[in-house]
Design a protein around this nucleic acid. Structure first.
Lengths: 289, 289
DNA sequence: TCCATTGAATGGGTGATCCATTTAATAATT
DNA sequence: AATTATTAAATGGATCACCCATTCAATGGA
């Protein structure tokens, strides 16, 4: 801040002139074997470089959760970029769940941890963009849950069973009081608890992301048609009992048959699986991160 | 652009004054039951709102892959924000794989599709941040591959088998010529082909993201110790033969025993599973998106 | 001791301005 | 007429110089 260099382009700090790259790939001039690599679509930009460097520091362990990056103004100067460009990078990393930006003195960019919801966003984006289909998502969910049940059956602890019991209790109440949409929320929780019971956060994240989206369709269906899965709580109780007995085969069988029943229920109404319907609904819910 | 409004704050276009929100949650004033919700950590910012709106348009199908957003200057004016802030949002969405920004006249922000690599980034970030562990990743990989083998066994087509055969061929050549690191690259491809053979992009993405990271550890191990899995190509050939016979049980058994053997090999060298080692290696590879 | 005030640091945001790239239209050349 | 070079406009990339709102520690008065 003190050794402020000349007004324009003080860039010669740490970034070795990002402009003027990889020209010279003149198509006619090269008589060489011409490697089959295509040049990247768009040139490297400052904010990409910054994101990469910060990620590098994270991967190498130089930056750890809880650490604070230098203030925007300082860091921008260190990197030899304008504050605006730095902010583009910081915002991107914040959206990626890597940083958290906090205002005020003692504020700054802090390295985050524990955010397991980014995969949901990725999954949602891919669905919106048509990169993946609802069918693929449903199929993946049913199959991944096989795995979840197997692992949960082995690894679930008393606390997990208690949480599942409590959840089923809430489901009962919601059913009795006719709060069908709350019941859907309970279902979402049920799978979240089950996923956590695997003891594997990677698998939990995967199943959460897929379940999150699935539940929107269920929500939309229930909200529009008013029909709901019959005997849901009973089925769940039976399932949890099997889980308690550590009876893997039975637990998987019960879960799978339930999931397929739900799937049939959803599919019997064409259009209920439409993206727009499901996405328009459930906005006020806990959907927000 | 023509009806350029007055120089300062023409903000009353579409954004209803983003400043001054949700005050009034005075801690002392509320004698009410005090709902157990905590107010969000940081206030809503313009770029978040913009990202959300664009994602909303995507989810609703108003924006589709290939569509072009208005030019930055125009869109900024429409939204009633400065161009800088809009760019923060656009950069974030580009990093998320939702948009692609292209320079020049006829350039602009185009809605992307088909990018299945975002999940890899998420997984990598979570590992760097310590949100997930290497152990969880390995366990998830082994279990998810059960599923992949089962689905691939049912769904694989001739083209998939051919691709697997060709891959094994390359593995043989790399082995014969002692190019051990190329062999690791072949392994990465092998699992990618296998994942694609499931016919389910969601599952393929999941296994790709997990395999991608796993292979860095293998790469680091091979690069440092020089030891490599013996009889790799033979094992693969046997596996693919079983796959061709659609013998699910055998295929799963073979894959699992192989994965566990690799796992043991990796674990026998403490420190080989360290993050830093694995991440420092394999930079020049195809790791780049 | 307690509470109000102040001020500095920080992120949030703006607007003007310039650069580099890309493309289409135009002019010059053959 | 066809080809090639030039030009101009639109667009994203980047910078600078500000200003505002929030936060929090230091200060000072009751």
């Amino acid at each position: 801040m003190s050794p402020k260099s000349s007004p324009h382009t003080p860039a010669s700090l740490r970034r070795p002139s990002p402009k003027r790259r990889e020209r010279g790939s003149d198509l006619r001039a090269s008589g060489a074997p011409a490697p089959p690599t295509f040049r990247p679509i768009h040139t490297r930009r400052a904010f990409e470089e910054i994101c990469e460097r910060i990620r590098e520091q994270l991967a190498l362990g130089v930056l750890k959760p809880g650490d604070k990056l230098p203030a925007e103004r300082d860091l921008a100067q260190q990197l030899g970029v304008s504050r605006n460009v730095l902010r583009e990078a910081l915002r991107s990393l914040e959206m990626a769940g890597v940083l958290r930006l906090q205002k005020g003195v003692k504020g700054g960019a802090f390295v985050q941890t524990g955010d397991t919801s980014r995969m949901n966003v990725v999954m949602q984006d891919m669905l919106s963009l048509g990169t993946i289909s609802v069918r693929e998502l449903s199929e993946a969910r049913i199959n991944v849950l096989d795995l979840v049940v197997r692992l949960a059956c082995v690894n679930a602890r008393q606390a997990d069973f208690a949480a599942l019991d409590a959840n089923i209790e809430r489901t009962d109440v919601a059913t009795a009081e006719g709060r069908l949409l709350d019941r859907v929320e309970c279902s979402r929780e049920f799978y979240k608890i089950l996923a956590a019971a695997t003891g594997n956060k990677v698998i939990a994240m995967i199943v959460d992301s897929v379940t999150e989206i699935h539940m929107r369709f269920v929500y939309a269906k229930v909200a529009s048609s008013g029909v709901a899965m019959p005997r849901l709580a009973e089925r769940r109780r039976q399932f949890v009992a099997t889980l308690r007995e550590r009876n893997v085969a039975s637990a998987i069988r019960l879960m799978r048959s339930h999931l397929e029943a739900v799937q049939r229920m959803l599919e019997q109404d064409p259009g209920a699986m439409s993206l727009q319907v499901a996405l328009a609904e459930m906005q006020p819910g806990i959907t927000r991160r």
